[in-house]
Computed example of a mutant assay.
Amino acid sequence: MSNSTPNLSPEPPGAAGLPSTPLAPSDFSQFLPVQVPILPWKNAKLLSQALGDTVYVSSAFATALRLELQLGVPAQRGEVGVRIPLDDPASWSELFCLGDTAPQLGRALRAEVSAQELLENPQASAKLLSRLAENNWYGLEIEVPGENLDSQLIQVARRAADAGLHPALSVLPGALHSQNQGIMSAFETISLDLLNGYQPRREQLKYLATQRVVGKIIDAKDSERTNLEAALETLVLMRAKLDSQSEVAVGIAGHFGLESLTLPLREDLDFVARTRLAGAREKIFEALDLANALTQGKTTVASAFVADVLSRAGKATSLPV
Rank of each mutant, 00 (worst) to 15 (best):
R212M: 14
G164L: 07
L169G: 07
T210H: 03
A175P: 00
E188C: 05
L195K: 03
T189W: 08
K206L: 14
R159Q: 12
Q204A: 09
A209V: 12
R159Y: 09
L208S: 11
R201T: 13
S191Y: 07
G174W: 11
A168T: 07
Q204C: 03
K206G: 12
Y207W: 11
G197K: 03
D162C: 14
M184I: 13
L208E: 09
A163Q: 06
H166I: 12
S178V: 15
V213A: 07
S170H: 08
Q181E: 13
V213K: 09
R202S: 13
T189C: 13
T189I: 08
S185F: 06
R202A: 14
V171E: 01
R159H: 10
L205N: 01
A160V: 12
Q199K: 05
L192A: 04
A209M: 14
V214S: 09
G197C: 07
R201L: 05
I183C: 09
I183W: 05
Q199P: 02
D193Q: 04
Q211E: 10
Q211K: 05
A175D: 04
E188Q: 07
Q204Y: 08
T189L: 01
N180W: 06
F187N: 01
G182M: 04
T210F: 03
M184K: 05
A160S: 10
S178L: 11
R158W: 14
A157V: 04
V171C: 01
V171W: 02
Q204T: 08
D162L: 15
E188A: 10
D162E: 12
L194Y: 09
D193C: 04
D193N: 09
Q155C: 15
Q204M: 05
H166T: 13
A161P: 00
S185L: 06
Q179D: 13
R159E: 15
P200S: 15
A186Y: 07
A168N: 11
L205F: 01
R212G: 08
G197P: 00
T210S: 13
R212H: 11
P200F: 00
A175Y: 01
I183E: 02
P167W: 15
G215E: 08
T210R: 14
S178W: 02
L205V: 13
T210L: 09
H166W: 11
R158G: 12
E203S: 04
V214K: 05
L192S: 08
I183D: 03
E203N: 14
L195S: 00
H166M: 13
A160E: 11
G174C: 04
P200W: 01
G182P: 00
Q199E: 14
V171F: 06
M184F: 09
D193L: 07
D162V: 13
L192G: 02
L176H: 00
G164Q: 00
Q204K: 09
G215R: 00
G215C: 05
A163N: 11
L205R: 04
M184P: 00
H166R: 07
A157D: 06
R202H: 12
S185Y: 01
P200I: 00
T210V: 15
